[in-house]
């Protein structure tokens, strides 16, 4: 008689536990009251269970954000792990929402949970997508603007993973500048 042993399915653990946050703009409430923790996960399978269940970014209402951050880091400049950091920012035109927004955001998520930045993945705090009528934004946040080697490696790898052509330049901005300046006043600390 054949003897069958049933092996339990073991999910594939991620290096980090991640938290998904959702922001829905309600101007009658303070910013922080509009931010909700959706859930946490730490396996490949649980990531997909979540991703397959929630709305694609391109279907969100304008003013909404998704943020995916390492467990314990809140998706705001004020968090201790973010306050000395900055972001690699991808700005998209209105036309890119249908063509590239979901693809870029999924690629960003896969970079984060897959630890795509080699020895510098520890420098990564999370990623954010802002859905806005005037143009969507996607960013990867890192914790230290002064760690030039890490910031540049993350930026180059991220640009490659998004499949952006060499002639497209993406910029890294310090949160300290983003928090105090707006629009054209924000200087890129690095570009790749």
């Amino acid at each position: 008689k054949e003897h069958l042993t049933i092996q339990p399915y073991v999910k594939h653990p991620l290096q980090n536990r991640w938290t998904l946050w959702f922001f829905k703009n309600d101007k009658s409430k303070p910013w922080q009251a509009n931010l909700r923790l959706v859930t946490k996960f730490d396996t490949v399978e649980d990531f997909w269970a979540l991703y397959n269940h929630i709305q694609l970014a391109s279907r969100l209402m304008s003013g909404c954000d998704y943020s995916l951050f390492k467990d314990g880091i809140e998706p705001m400049w004020e968090d201790n792990r973010n306050k000395c950091g900055g972001r690699w920012l991808i700005t998209l035109s209105k036309q890119q929402r249908m063509l590239e927004l979901d693809q870029f955001w999924l690629e960003t998520l896969l970079c984060l949970i897959g630890e795509a930045f080699d020895d510098y993945s520890n420098e990564v705090c999370g990623g954010v997508i802002n859905v806005r009528a005037k143009g969507d934004k996607i960013a990867i946040w890192t914790r230290d603007t002064e760690n030039q080697e890490a910031v540049l490696h993350i930026g180059k790898t991220y640009k490659e993973r998004l499949g952006l052509p060499v002639k497209i330049v993406i910029g890294y901005q310090a949160h300290a500048d983003t928090a105090t300046k707006s629009g054209l006043g924000i200087k890129n600390k690095f570009v790749v």
Binding site: F47, W48, G114
Partner: peptide
């Protein structure tokens, strides 16, 4: 031992439960 996963590996799991 760092758990680094490339995109193809991760994408391979997107519908794993749908096919079981």
């Amino acid at each position: 031992d760092k758990k680094k996963y490339d995109r193809e590996f991760l994408l391979g799991f997107q519908f794993i439960f749908a096919s079981m």
